[in-house]
Nucleic acid binder design. Sequence first.
DNA 1: TCTGGGGTCCTAGGACCC
DNA 2: TCTGGGGTCCTAGGACCC
Length: 355
Amino acid sequence: MSTRDWILHVDLDQFIAAVELLRHPELRGRPVVVGGSGDPTQPRTVAATATYEAREHGVHSGMPLRTALKRCPDAIFLPSDPPAYEAASERVMAVLREFPVRVEIWGWDEAFIGATTDDPEALAADIRHAVQARTQLSCSIGIGDNKHQAKLASAFAKPAGIHRLTGDNWAETMNHRPTDALWGIGVKTARKLAALGLHTVAELAAADPAHLARHFGPTNGPWYRYLALGKGEAEVVTTPWIARGHSHETTFQHDLTDRTAIAHHVAALATRVAHDAAEAGRHIARVSVKVRFTPFLTRTRQSKLPAPTTDPATIERTALTILDRFDLNRPVRLLGVAVDYTLPDDDQPTLDTLE
DNA sequence: TCTGGGGTCCTAGGACCC
DNA sequence: TCTGGGGTCCTAGGACCC
């Protein structure tokens, strides 16, 4: 075997449920659903995850807790505890970084690894065992020529396995599958592709890029075909990700109709976002307000600031001005405030830095 | 199944300018 | 004042992912 570069995708198995079961070992083997504050009678709250035992009753992540309760009355409902998952995630990533590899963290429960080796399966097995031994968490590892292949391979490897998907076995593995088996094509795009007669990965791979560009845009169209051919990004970026923006939003259990109360919530969300940005040392270039009306009609309005700022009062005032542009004549179920950051190298000088 | 929260990127269309 | 063409900036919305 010859030494060459590989991309590995490490995916923790049932991450949130696994962390909860470490804390509550007595619940092992029982149907457990995690989500919201753990109260399954609360409306407008969905499951973050469900254990295999709960899935057998038809419960899955994204399902409203009230539905989960109906389907599985014996389930144990636990509140979601993001700081605990964050801490567990950091322990796992620390284990990965002890290997002579390049690590790119991709969310809480995933990472891409760039490695140069003649035996990627042996490396993957070593990583799996180290993660299990050090954190008591199980992971699956996909091996590929690029991130796309490695990502799909880790799904084939589940649970607790290792799978290799490269140019050599791409066609036999993927060609017969529906287009939404690809990472980046979801149900909506798959439906549009099907309307063009493109149902399978093989059909998409053979499609005319110009035809795809006409229907999906100059970037997306050709990109879909590229995905169907098994191609993808192969560069592992080890420098920390620089966030493009930040947001907070709240779904209310009971609709808001009072203008003053709505404004109060928007102001509070804006202040929170602005403080987070200041803490992260980031300048805000644009502010967006999101309003979701009942039943589920979502509208956004946004404004670019005259100059980037870190001032919470300016963000709050801007958000309230944007709110004035909405027609608030129907009940509101969600409010959100989002900001775009300036990129660190194009921070514009503000008036006060010039003075 | 009455549908969370936090992100990223792309596209279309209008305004404005030359 | 029957009306081009291009470039850039901004906004709103869509799609996807975890």
